[in-house]
């Protein structure tokens, strides 16, 4: 439970995570207790299976992608608490005062980057038509025909690609998403 967890989490670690992620002391201890409850093997790190055991995540069409992005932070198929918190921190709501802060862990830039990586399956910092197609297929399953998905992917690339290389770079992605409400839609309200 919560306080047993905070016993294992040293005060210095909490402070360090606080500085790094901007979460409050209380949020950190509570998320730590969540982390340990997900950690079924109790080795201080989460595996893919640990995360995909969450039913609400398992039914999410892009659930596996989200999990994948958690593992970009970590090495060898494990995510420790620091890495876990770093990923969650991207989804902290943005204060109006830090609107132009590009460096913050939860900045508009960082949120967009997360979304970009959802599509960038091979991590080459470019989204190809094929990648759009694959992610689309994850989202719609068998409900839309391959042909139709293909034309959606074509159109998506055509609209976002400005330099004509048939792929979407991060800069192009940001441009295409300019009018989307990233700050709002990519934020989770963590309670204090």
């Amino acid at each position: 439970m919560g306080s047993r967890a905070s016993l294992l989490l040293r005060q210095e670690e909490i402070e360090e995570i606080q500085r790094e992620t901007g979460f409050s002391h209380n949020q950190i201890t509570r998320l730590y207790s969540r982390f340990t409850s997900l950690d079924k093997s109790q080795n201080g790190a989460l595996s893919r299976e640990d995360l995909l055991r969450i039913p609400e995540l398992a039914i999410n069409p892009l659930g596996e992608r989200v999990v994948q992005l958690f593992f970009l932070e970590g090495e060898d198929e494990q995510v420790n608490f620091r890495q876990y918190m770093r990923t969650l921190a991207r989804f902290r709501p943005l204060d109006p005062s830090q609107k132009n802060d590009k460096e913050g862990v939860n900045s508009r830039e960082k949120k967009l980057e997360f979304a970009f990586r959802m599509y960038d399956l091979d991590q080459d910092n470019r989204i190809s038509r094929d990648e759009v197609l694959q992610v689309l297929r994850m989202m719609v399953g068998v409900n839309i025909s391959e042909e139709q998905l293909g034309s959606i992917a074509d159109r998506t690339i055509l609209e976002a690609d400005t330099d004509g290389d048939q792929r979407i770079s991060f800069e192009e992605f940001c441009k295409a998403m300019e009018r989307s409400e990233v700050e709002q839609k990519m934020s989770v309200r963590f309670l204090d």
């Binding site: 609400e56 979304a115 989202m139």
Partner: peptide, 24 residues
């Protein structure tokens, strides 16, 4: 029409489930 920002919804739900879910 499909928009690239459609993934936001699934991202947020995924993160919400990881941070807290009603079932586990």
């Amino acid at each position: 029409e499909f928009e690239l920002s459609d993934c936001y919804h699934f991202c947020r739900q995924g993160i919400e489930a990881i941070a807290d879910d009603s079932v586990t």
